[in-house]
Computed example of a mutant assay.
Amino acid sequence: MLKIWGRKTSSNVQAVMWCIAEFGLPFERIDAGFKYGVVNTPDYLAMNPNGTVPTLVDGTNPPLWESGAILRYLANMYAPETFWPADPAARAFVDQWAEWSKVNFTQSFTGPIFWRVVRTAPALRDPVAIRNALATLDKKLDIAEAQLAKTPYLSGPELTLADIQFGHCLFRYFTIDIERRDRPVLTAYYNALTDRAAYADHVMVPYDELAVED
């Protein structure tokens, strides 16, 4: 039985939960972080000295933290060949796009845009900074669209770890109040993700509790 600490509105937790659900693994999730607390308790810090979420415990194995490491662990332990290939070269290709998604897309979206739009009071928002961040993000999305124009998923014909790292932020990208370029390829990809039960259950989570009002 997998045990995961982390609130359902954390994007990093959502990535891990989406992956777990795709594999059909039994789990228990405990709300932690943000208004739910837990992460500053001695017991939690003994598992994860960073006081962050998610943290995962799988049976008697040591606790794991950092969502990227957790996702790779889950892939190594439980993924089908189509999701995480055994062949080193094929796996590296998937991992390349997974790393690109986390470093280039997610980091260009979450802090520079999502935090500035949702987690900042309207009176304190910086429209120039948001506009500049969107211009930077669009360059990353151009790369994703070019790849998705060639293949249904980010690294090939099947869902892989790369899609978990890329797709888990798309619900927020498509639903927050920002100007978005018309991207039919990306939109079709996102719509296909929303048809997946695991994505709908664990990624398409309202983030109202994160919004900061004046």
Rank of each mutant, 00 (worst) to 15 (best):
L2P: 10
L2M: 09
T9C: 10
S10D: 01
V13R: 01
F23H: 11
G24I: 08
P26N: 10
F27C: 15
R29K: 14
I30K: 11
I30T: 15
D31A: 13
D31Q: 12
Y36G: 07
T41K: 14
A46Q: 13
M47R: 15
P49K: 04
N50Y: 03
L56N: 09
V57W: 00
N61D: 11
Y73E: 12
N76D: 14
N76R: 15
A79K: 11
P80F: 01
E81Y: 04
P85G: 04
D87E: 13
P88H: 09
V94L: 12
D95W: 05
W100D: 13
N104T: 12
N104Q: 14
F105M: 15
S108W: 03
T110A: 10
G111D: 01
F114I: 09
V117G: 06
A121D: 00
I130Y: 06
L134S: 04
A135Q: 00
T136R: 02
L141Q: 00
A144H: 00
E145A: 01
E145G: 02
A146R: 02
Q147G: 05
T151V: 07
P152L: 10
P152K: 02
Y153E: 04
Y153P: 06
L154A: 03
S155T: 07
D163S: 08
D163A: 07
I164M: 06
G167I: 01
R183M: 06
V185E: 01
Y190R: 02
R196G: 02
A198D: 06
D201T: 15
D214K: 12
